[in-house]
Simulated assay, not measured.
Amino acid sequence: MTTKTIGILVTGHSPAELTDEYGNYADMFAALLGKFDFTFKRFFVVDGEFPESPNEADGWLLTGSKFGVYEDHEWIRKLEDFIRQVHAAKVPMVGICFGHQVMAKALGGHVEKFKGGWSAGPVTYKRSDTGEEQVLLAWHQDQVIKVPEGAEVVGKTDACENAVIRYGDWGLSYQPHPEFSPRFFEGLAEARKAAIPEPLFEQVKKVEVPIATDKIAQEIGEFFTRDR
C-alpha cells in the first residue's frame, strides 16, 4: 500500500516557552498519528505559506489557532478559498478547533463567540454516531453556531451543540484538541491564563482525568486511510 501524504495546514503558533519541549502544532499532530504510515508536509498558512494545489497531499489537516475565523486577515480568507478547492477536489480534510470552525465557515456555516463563555479543560463529548462519551481537552470560546448544509453533527457537549461534524465521506472536524497532551495543556493554560476567567483557570490548570487521545487518533487515521 502506498504511503499517504498528509498536508498539515498550520493556522497558529504554540506558545514560544513550550516549543522546545513539545514542538509546534504540526509536530503534535505528526506524533498523534505516528502509528499510521503517513508522511507529513507542513504549510504555515498563518504566515502566508500555502500549498499550490489541493492535490499536493492525499489528505489535509487544519490545526488550532488563537485567531477567530471571522477576523479580517488575508490568510484566513485565502484559507477559506483553499478549503473550498479541497472540497471540490474531494481530497479528505480533518479540522481541529479553529480548523473545525473555518471548515464550517468556508462551506456556508456561521461561527461566533459563544455567549455562554469559554470551554476549557477536560470536557465530556457525547457522540451520536458511536454512542460513546469521550473526555477531550477543550480551549475555545468561539463555536460553530450554524452548520453548513449537508453536514451532520455527530458530537456535542452541554455547552457546545456542534462539537464534532461529519461532511459525508469528505470531511471530519472536532472542536476539542486531541493533539494536546495533559502536560502541554497545563503549560498552555499557564501561558495564556489571562485569556480566561481566573475561576476557570483554577479549575483547569491541572488535568487529572484520562483523555480519549488514542480513540480520536485512531478515528482520524482511519478516516484518512479509508478507500474512496
Rank of each mutant, 00 (worst) to 15 (best):
G48K: 09
E49Q: 15
E49V: 15
E49M: 12
F50S: 12
P51R: 09
S53Q: 05
N55W: 02
A57S: 11
D58H: 12
G59I: 03
L61E: 05
T63R: 10
G68D: 03
V69N: 01
V69L: 01
D72R: 11
H73E: 14
W75L: 08
I76R: 09
R77S: 13
K78D: 12
E80K: 14
E80T: 03
R84F: 00
R84K: 13
Q85H: 05
Q85C: 02
A89P: 02
K90S: 13
V91Q: 06
P92V: 02
V94P: 06
G95Y: 03
G95S: 06
I96Q: 04
F98R: 05
V102H: 06
V102R: 08
V102D: 07
M103P: 01
M103K: 03
M103Q: 13
K105Y: 03
K105I: 04
A106K: 03
A106N: 02
A106H: 05
L107Y: 01
G108W: 03
G108K: 04
G109V: 03
E112F: 07
K113M: 14
K113I: 11
K113W: 10
F114K: 13
K115V: 11
K115R: 14
W118H: 08
S119Q: 15
S119A: 15
A120D: 06
P122T: 06
P122R: 07
K126W: 03
D129N: 15
E133P: 08
E133A: 13
E133Y: 05
Q134C: 11
Q134L: 15
A138T: 11
H140T: 03
Q141R: 14
D142I: 10
Q143N: 11
I145S: 14
K146P: 00
V147R: 10
G150V: 09
E152R: 13
V154S: 11
V154W: 08
K156I: 00
K156A: 15
K156G: 05
A159G: 09
